[in-house]
């Protein structure tokens, strides 16, 4: 058999070593995702990229592509489940799009639009989470953190600094900072670090940049996330 699989009936080639997500991205097929970024090691935690392969649900960002796979991706069932996962993320954190600087550039918000999420459905958790404004150039607002660990991976794999990590367990999981005080201002983080650029939400924001790009001219204001992420590489 040749090295191809099908996604929603469309035949797609892959190279050995690629995941389903890699193959889909290369072929311009959009699979919703939040914690995945092709620049870093796949993580598989948000579960938005769940697809059905030969009857079984798997995370497409971590599952190696294999010949003959029949993948279902853009189906009402999967998109419905993905919408529920988004609603869960909105319910567990404190996401206030209208007053968030990341609005319009936020992957979480853009995915919610893409998947037609019109209400939070679940009862809000309203957790009490810490905001860390100690760094001169970067703001860490844990209220918007979705535990995707992109900053953790970027800081470790690219910046070589290990500024971020996760502590706690379950719903108590929280982003922690590598400093004796636990404060971003006492860490080795620099504003130019990759870790600062990769946050898919507004948990990490660069200070004094607020509204430089006005609402209405932001990344996802005119094109849905599915188009942005399949045409111009990864945001």
């Amino acid at each position: 058999m040749s090295d191809t699989l099908t996604i929603d009936g469309k035949e797609i080639p892959y190279r050995p070593g690629q995941t389903i997500m890699d193959a889909a991205m290369a072929a311009g097929v959009y699979i919703p995702h939040l914690c995945h970024n092709p620049e870093f090691k796949p993580h598989g935690s948000c579960k938005l990229c769940m697809v059905n392969v030969n009857g079984r649900n798997v995370a497409s960002c971590t599952m190696p592509a294999a010949s003959g796979m029949t993948v279902l991706n853009d189906t009402p069932e999967l998109n419905g489940a993905r919408r529920s996962l988004l609603q869960m993320l909105f319910a567990e954190g404190n996401h206030l799009c209208p007053v968030c600087e990341r609005s319009g550039n936020c992957h979480l918000q853009a995915l919610a639009y893409y998947l037609g999420m019109t209400n939070p459905h679940y009862v809000q958790f309203y957790p009490s989470r810490e905001v860390d404004a100690s760094h001169p150039d970067v703001l860490l607002d844990r209220n918007r953190c979705i535990m995707c660990e992109l900053c953790v991976r970027a800081s470790s794999e690219v910046d070589g600094k290990d500024v971020f990590g996760l502590s706690g367990r379950g719903i108590q999981t929280r982003l922690v900072v590598n400093a004796p005080t636990g404060l971003l201002g006492d860490s080795a983080l620099a504003v130019s670090d990759k870790a600062v650029q990769v946050c898919p939400t507004g948990a990490l924001l660069i200070k004094r940049q607020g509204y430089r790009v006005p609402v209405g001219r932001r990344m996802f204001d005119h094109k849905p996330i599915s188009v942005v992420q399949t045409e111009g590489g990864h945001d």
Partner: peptide, 21 residues
């Protein structure tokens, strides 16, 4: 289960809490 979920994936981290609530 809500107490023991490791918190890694969204459906279990949040789902076990919602179930408990």
């Amino acid at each position: 289960f809500a107490h023991e979920s490791c918190g890694f994936c969204t459906p279990c981290r949040v789902g076990t809490q919602l179930q408990r609530k």
